[in-house]
Design a protein around this nucleic acid. Structure first.
Lengths: 84, 84, 84, 84
DNA sequence: ATTTTAGGAGTGCAAC
DNA sequence: GTTGCACTCCTAAAAT
């Protein structure tokens, strides 16, 4: 049983270490998410519309050509639907 | 026990009925979601950009004043960030 | 220009029809979601914990194999923490 | 107009700074998400089932009371279906 | 290539 | 009214 027990323990430890690494990283990630939430709170506190700031940030993530294309297609569809 | 048994059954039935009503409604909802998916497939099949059609539909959901306001604020922020 | 105008209109109509179909379906979907909300209100009104009812319904959605797997994972977790 | 111009610039800078802080934090967050992905790759490489490891980690996140509640709900579900 | 799956974003609801 | 929570949807990665 000692052999088996030893092997099982080694396996358990390896799994445990991996799990703990992931959990630590997830905690860091959560911390950063909290920071982001705080900044959005500040955005709102100083009078900006957080929802729109989110949209702007999403737009900034796109490359300029894609953004221009998207915007022009959107205009096209809006016109087609009488929303111009 | 018959009293308790009877009460428990009545309670179980009431719960079961509520659960089954919810499940039936959820199934209906899923069916409609599937239909929507199908229409988007058709949107794409005839050459439109489904993602942008989604955006247009979201815009149509807003009342015109809110939409105008949102669009103007978005422009404002874009200019503030040199994305004009 | 009449040709172009005609084509453009036909295209516009096709888009519009698709959009309207989607909007009608989304409205139906919203109606059903409202019905579900009502049933949950009733669930709560007669004394059940709506949150737990949600969990029960989620469990009922799972197939037996997944449920069995989930249970074995629970055991695994307990063993890993010396709670076996 | 210089006053107004100055104020506008100050406002713009404030928005820009907030946006840049958010973008930096989001980049950090993405970096950590990548690290997590790497650990899961290692989990798999040494022979564990990453999907089950995910479930275990999710279970470890729950507090004991929630876990106890979940278990009792499982029982409830089984009873409701005559599997008690 | 296709299909599934996880992660993330956005939306709406309820509780405080 | 605001904050947090739950659900839904969408996108991007992974596996087959």
């Amino acid at each position: 049983m000692s052999e088996i027990g030893h092997n099982a323990s080694a396996t358990d430890d390896r799994l445990r270490l991996l799990v703990e690494r992931i959990e630590r990283l997830e905690e860091e990630k959560r911390g950063i998410a909290d920071d982001i939430r705080d900044v959005y709170a500040e955005v709102k506190a100083v009078g900006y519309d957080a929802r729109i700031v989110r949209k702007v940030i999403a737009l900034r993530k796109m490359n300029p050509d894609d953004r221009a294309e998207m915007e022009s297609v959107l205009e096209l569809y809006k016109c087609a639907l009488g929303m111009g």
